[in-house]
Design a protein around this nucleic acid. Structure first.
Lengths: 136, 136
DNA sequence: ACTACATTTAACGTGTTGGTTAAGTGATTG
DNA sequence: CAATCACTTAACCAACACGTTAAATGTAGT
């Protein structure tokens, strides 16, 4: 989809196993394109373009030193991604089950649901209309 | 990329703002396709296919009750995604800066780096070769 | 059975993605 | 200054994503 907004770009970047592998590599040490390509089953141009995608998402930065081009992880955008996901923690974290049940009960009072385990609460009503207008 | 593995499917699903909006909606209450379509600027068939993508990623489950088809959030896979991202927390969480500096120093002893803020440590060496073999 | 409603599937257009190889760019090295 | 190294860009292709409208499916009501 491309995803012009930050969050979309980040999730989109993370959706590719090759790019996740690159990030894992860069978590250990900064690396050149050649170094990053070595363990991968794809050509250098392909890697170059993955790096471009990661850069677009703000997940890496790059500096040229001589003829080498170093990539450095820049994981700040992951914070936003983590925070987005965290809002759904109650749906998988069992320690929140009781709170969930309570909230479900509260909501059930107002409007009947057959939901037993969870229901109600926060995650942002993130209007996609804007995104659509922007990117189509 | 499509991404046949779980993590790829999840991140791929989250990469679309419309799908994130749908998840946010479903966090409040189970809903029918019609209900989900209402606030969105796209047609029902389009929504139907977004739901298919979310289902493929394991992020929702669906049951038919009469002529209605209810979608329910099933956020368990988000846990895996959150855990993956968490491995990079040290790259953005300032409270870990000192530990980072320490680890960087330790690594610098063995092999010189100009990395001042962070370096070293864990994230999985997730080989993308397998994924490629599987999905191409 | 006919009709209406809810949703999916089909067919189609278009843009994007991820890979390839071949050619271009820029800095270092002989 | 020519050759080489480290990349990037261009050109191309197959597959997919995302939207549309029109037709098909399935369930409920009359």
């Amino acid at each position: 989809m491309s995803g012009s907004d930050q969050l979309s770009a980040v999730f989109s970047a993370l959706a590719d196993p090759t790019r996740r592998a690159i990030l894992a590599e860069l978590a250990d040490r900064d690396a050149t394109v050649t170094e990053l390509t070595a363990p991968l089953p794809i050509s250098m141009p392909a890697v170059s373009r993955h790096l471009k995608a990661l850069e677009r998402a703000g997940l890496i930065s790059r500096t040229r030193s001589g003829k080498l081009r170093m990539s450095r992880i820049e994981a700040a955008p992951l914070r936003e991604a983590a925070e987005w996901i965290e809002r759904y923690r109650r749906f998988w974290d069992t320690s929140l089950t009781r709170l969930d049940a309570h909230l479900a009960a509260v909501q059930a009072a107002g409007r009947p649901t057959d939901r037993t385990t969870h229901g109600s609460a926060c995650p942002d009503r993130e209007s996609p209309s804007k995104a659509h207008d922007k990117e189509n």
